[in-house]
Design a protein around this nucleic acid. Sequence first.
DNA 1: TTGAAAGCGCTAACAT
DNA 2: ATGTTAGCGCTTTCAA
Lengths: 333, 333
Amino acid sequence: MTDRQPTLDEVARRAGVSRGTVSRVINNAPHVSRAARQAVERAIKDLDYVPNVAARSLATQRSGAVVLAVSSDDQALFTNPFFAEVIVGVNAALEETDLELLLILAASERGRNRLARVLQSRRADGVMLLALRENDPLAKVAAEGGVPVVHGGRSLGGSHHWYVDADNRDGARQAAEYLISIGRTRIATITGPLDMHVGVSRYLGFREALALAGLGDERVAHGDFTEASGAAAMARLLTDHPDLDAVLIASDEMAVGALGVLKERGRAVPGEIAVVGFDDVVTARHTHPTLTTVRQPIKALGREMIRMLLALIRGEQPTPLILPTELVIRESA
Amino acid sequence: MTDRQPTLDEVARRAGVSRGTVSRVINNAPHVSRAARQAVERAIKDLDYVPNVAARSLATQRSGAVVLAVSSDDQALFTNPFFAEVIVGVNAALEETDLELLLILAASERGRNRLARVLQSRRADGVMLLALRENDPLAKVAAEGGVPVVHGGRSLGGSHHWYVDADNRDGARQAAEYLISIGRTRIATITGPLDMHVGVSRYLGFREALALAGLGDERVAHGDFTEASGAAAMARLLTDHPDLDAVLIASDEMAVGALGVLKERGRAVPGEIAVVGFDDVVTARHTHPTLTTVRQPIKALGREMIRMLLALIRGEQPTPLILPTELVIRESA
DNA sequence: TTGAAAGCGCTAACAT
DNA sequence: ATGTTAGCGCTTTCAA
């Protein structure tokens, strides 16, 4: 099972050249004759040689890996399709490079220490962070790791130097404008946590659209992105603003909860009340009625995070990125 | 940003001992005096020293990482909550060790090459495989990697030496017996692909229960675990066996499709037709009615895969593991 | 264009 | 119990 791998020396011997030359070929450096290069390539193929990464890292001081660290208090949060899709995007982007992906789910102190250790032991050349809360301690750990850090999503305080985010504000605005365009005038919203950038910006987009249309934006309830909070918020809205004819909900998960409440109370969707969610996670296609929602370019987000990280690793100074969002119209509005 | 990390030599100098002693302390080997140990520990703390993993791997011939390779044709498949939960389980188990997790989504030839490269370059000490199809080429790549391989799920041909699987057969049997216990007698099933162990075993469990009860097991349609196939199969069953009063469906995703069809045709669930799914993915709690289903111990599966892999890496010969499944009764049956 | 040699930072075998 | 030394397999000067 552990049949020793061939070494670079063996390749050199077989190709009849020096180790220096083999190394040059492998890293396709200049100053190698055609003949030498071919001999080496042949030897590599013959021996099925693959460089030992430990030795290489030791010599180059680079690990050839990046880490994706996800901060989530609740393990269930990771089950959120959002993360899976980001990972798919990151993975796809990585296939273009020769980097590997280290995954760390750092919910606890322990997880954070793991990230710290990984970075300090130089096992990774950079970090991507999917942190949920404002001032997540994981961000500090990452920042102290001595390698470039790219954030998924902005922070409220603007403390993230490099990030890739979706244009949440514009997405919410599009959604609200759509509700207006189909004749709704008493539009409510269920927001996400307002101590998160994503929560605030979706709320702002909503208000902006209503203000532009001269509509009142006083129908507001707050949630925390969970399904249960969506249900509770919907119930509150129904009580406080019984006249509402539409509701823009800051996450699909909350929308699922809200739809449940509306169904219980016998309120027709979208007949009586139009509903729009946010995120376009898979669930949105399986609700009844199917959910009109704002799509975030989740895969692109993963891809761009990698791109940005690579630029930083190369020593460049990329600019933060904001990706467009798009309204997906289904049955619920 | 890249303030050079302290080296073991520096620790040794600071502690006033030899490098050998420092190394012994770090790997808590025997033969170190209390005094020396304390001096070293102090120096490590003072300098905030963390061993360089490249150097260590080079010397020990171990990488300190394992890879989780997921084979999925369709990227959407990875979005399946199943994978997310396995990852959570694996991650949790890893926190107990000092191993890191490398994630490879190997849908294509390219992804497979990545796995091959990772293994040959000795970047990982073992592989966990989540392969979907029988004879997945990824399995071959992993097997040739020269490190231990643990499979999630069995293969039909028995070609997997080490695996952790759920007791699918028993789960299906439990589900069918439950349907029988609530008085259903004309029970149908929608199977998964019968060229997969998981598909076959769920089907066998179904047949077993019906045979024991002396019921006919001729009401069968086949699907491929996707929602669409579930819908199609349900439609077929309804046509071919209009008298059926219950249906055991081999995956929750297919059950969602089937529920849609039943709803369209105005067949009451569970009144007219009782429905049981399989997997207990999150979706099962959000269908209408909520789905009675068989729970797989997904997190445990991740945990046990790691445990088995570690044993193999230590050179032990663990035995394959089959984890119990459990019926979760909700509204649909 | 090529070869030789000096590390990269750690472990492990061998002395003491 | 501790120190010393020879690698681990690669990259990268520096000479030639």
